[in-house]
Each structure stands twice: as structure tokens, then as C-alpha cells.
Simulated scan of single mutants.
Amino acid sequence: MYTFLTCTFPCRPRRDMATLDRRAFLRTTGLAGLAFGLAACGDSGTSTASSGSGFGSVKLQLSWKKNVEFAGEYFADTNGHFKSAGFTQVELLSGGGSGTSVESGLATGRCWAGLSAPTITAPAVLQGAPLKIVGATFQKNPFAVISLNKNPIKEATDLVGKRIGVQDSNELVWNALLKANGIDAASVTRVPFQSDPSMLTSGQLDGYVGFVTSGPVNLRMQGHDPAYLLLADAGLPLVAETFTVTQQTIDSERDKLKAFLTAEIKGWKEAVADPARSAELAATVYGKDQNLDVKEQTEEAKMQNDLVVTEDVRANGLFTMTPELIEQNIDSLAKAGLTIKAEQLFDLTILDEVYEADPSLKLS
């Protein structure tokens, strides 16, 4: 039994109306209060079906509440890709809020796999958790500095002399951004922030840290002209929505994991091709209790496609990471105070085998 100390990390911005509600660092850039014991995992509670008919039922924990960010999972479920892969069911568990983190869920057997982020998984690994990232849906982390075009922040140097809304929980990544760009913290006025974009539109702020998939979309729908600077394009490249599993799953259930990732790839290929249907599934089926707006979710889906599909992804396949991107993530983690080796955190060999077995899974 492994026992870990509590580690405080940046967390997701709190919900404010319908703007930054599904966004925070708990899922994409940090770890909040992770304290768990991870057994050597003899049984995750989701073992292969004994009848030999397939892989049985498993639970996938999402990184946040059910919105369009998980469109690929909805397609894989709705269009039967999970069942075709041999699963009787893949149950999608909501994350976020007061829910259990993916890392804790893997520790307790609450889930078989989860969607997380390097800045959440790395601290757990450094504390001794036998976990690995086996793929990344978002090749670029969605976090950005959001501003208005009448006073835009489009380069890191534009931050100097500006008033930026940053939650206390996001201090770590904010400091890492400044460090990555050689910016003196004293040259930027950091303003206490609770996810209220009206502070930007009213002129109290020049910018704020938020999600590029939702912040600009909501501002635009309110009649404003937004600008943004992706942290991934400003010296802090990090992936997000990463498929995270235990080492035992890799070692003992490799074929099951490959079948699961194959179904996920098929689902995300369909999601990328149809943002409108992605939004419909999110708002009217899987996230129907979230009061989601189909139009807004459609625009989010279009925005996130740019984070999911890159030139490297078109060449190598969805969820893949080039060695260069992996090293960039390791360097970004180091800037955030997390020193870890690539082989401790990532294992992309499963995806290599998936695409080698079926090259047609790549985007056309």
C-alpha cells in the first residue's frame, strides 16, 4: 500500500454564471488536496468478463462535468464503438466540483481509466503512484490569457504593465508563465479574480486567465471582441484531457486498453468532423442536466478542434504525442516546479501499437 501526503496545487476557477463554469486548474493545471493510498491494485473492480465474451464494463472518469469537451466519448458510446471493441458498457463518470480526482479514482478503483492532465498526474507519480499517461486528447492546454481587442494581450511581453485577473489557486502556473518568458512579476499587476468576466468588460482588468474554448466564445456572444494568448503558445506548452491509467492496466490489460483507445479514436474522429452534433449530444443527452446552450457548445466544439487536431496529429493519429511534445511538457512541468522524467509519466507505446495494427484510424 502506497500512502501519499496531501499536495496543494492550483485548482479550477469557480463557476460564475455560464462563462468559466466548466474550467479550472484542478483538471488542467494542478492538483488540489490529493491524499490517497494506492494499493498494488490486484483488482480495480473492472476486470475482464469471465464469460470470455469481451471486456465487460469499465468506468471512465471525466475531468469535469459533462459538456462538449468530452464529445468523442459521447460519439464512441452513442455510435456503439465501445461495444464493438468488446465492452458491455463504458460508464462515463462526471468529474469536477466536489467529485474525486481521477488519480484518487484510480487509486480506489472508482474508475478504470480517467481524463486528467500532466500537472495533476505528475505530482501523484512523484508521490509514488504507479500511474501513466497513455494519450492526450488536447495537444494544447486550453488555458489562456483572455483580453479584448481594443486592448489586446497577444504576446507574453504584452503582459507588462497590465492588470491580470488570476485566482490564488492558479498562482503556480501564472508564475511558471512569467518565468518562461523572463517577466518580472512586479511588472504585472495581479488582481484577485473569481471567474467574473465582467471585470474585463467593465475595464477593471486588462485580461484574465481562463479557457480559450469558452471565454472568447461567451464574450463574443455578448457582443464583445475578444483576444487571447494561449499559454501553450507562450512558452508553457502542456497537453490536457490526458488518458491516465495504472501501470498494472498497461502490464496486465494491454489488449483491453488498446481496444478502449481504438473506440475512443473512432469517437473523436466523428466528433472533430461534426461540432454541431457534438454540441447536441452534450446539451441534450449526456449533459442535459447542465443547462448547456447548444449554440455556445457548438462554438466551443469548433474552438477545441484546434487544440485536438494539429499537423502532428494529422500525421501520427489522434491522442499521439511526438517525442518533442513530450519533452516540451517535461520542460513546462519543471518551470512549474515539478521535476520528472518523461518515462516516469508517459507511455505512448500502446497508441503506437493501435495505429500500427490499423493505420486507417488516422485522420484522412
Score class of each variant (00 low, 15 high):
178 L>G: 03
152 P>K: 07
149 N>P: 15
178 L>D: 08
359 P>C: 03
190 R>W: 13
250 I>N: 00
213 T>D: 14
289 D>G: 06
191 V>S: 07
352 D>P: 01
285 V>A: 09
22 R>W: 09
170 N>A: 15
319 F>W: 05
20 L>W: 09
229 L>P: 11
151 N>R: 09
31 L>H: 06
194 Q>W: 12
97 G>E: 14
137 T>K: 08
2 Y>G: 05
265 I>T: 02
150 K>H: 07
25 F>D: 02
204 Q>P: 01
117 A>N: 09
318 L>P: 04
361 L>I: 01
299 E>V: 14
358 D>M: 10
364 S>P: 09
350 I>L: 14
273 A>W: 06
215 G>N: 04
325 L>I: 10
261 L>N: 00
321 M>V: 06
360 S>A: 07
88 T>N: 13
335 K>S: 02
216 P>K: 01
255 D>T: 00
266 K>R: 06
241 E>L: 11
277 R>T: 14
221 M>V: 12
147 S>H: 02
78 T>F: 04
188 V>P: 01
49 A>I: 00
37 G>H: 05
18 A>G: 10
100 T>I: 12
255 D>I: 00
300 E>I: 06
124 A>Q: 15
105 G>A: 15
109 G>P: 07
142 P>M: 02
222 Q>A: 12
236 L>F: 07
165 G>Y: 08
78 T>S: 14
263 A>Y: 00
71 A>F: 08
319 F>I: 03
111 C>A: 09
318 L>A: 04
69 E>H: 15
83 K>P: 05
18 A>Y: 05
287 G>R: 08
303 M>D: 07
357 A>K: 01
93 L>A: 03
116 S>P: 10
165 G>V: 12
191 V>I: 13
222 Q>V: 04
32 A>L: 14
268 W>I: 06
17 M>P: 08
264 E>A: 01
109 G>S: 11
328 Q>A: 10
344 Q>E: 06
321 M>K: 02
207 G>A: 15
303 M>I: 13
167 Q>E: 13
326 I>S: 01
3 T>I: 08
128 G>T: 11
47 S>R: 03
347 D>Q: 05
25 F>H: 09
85 A>Y: 00
237 P>E: 06
323 P>S: 05
193 F>H: 06
53 S>L: 02
228 Y>V: 09
339 T>Y: 06
337 G>Y: 03
264 E>H: 11
259 A>M: 00
258 K>L: 00
318 L>G: 03
9 F>Y: 12
80 G>H: 13
85 A>H: 01
13 P>S: 08
355 Y>I: 14
172 L>P: 02
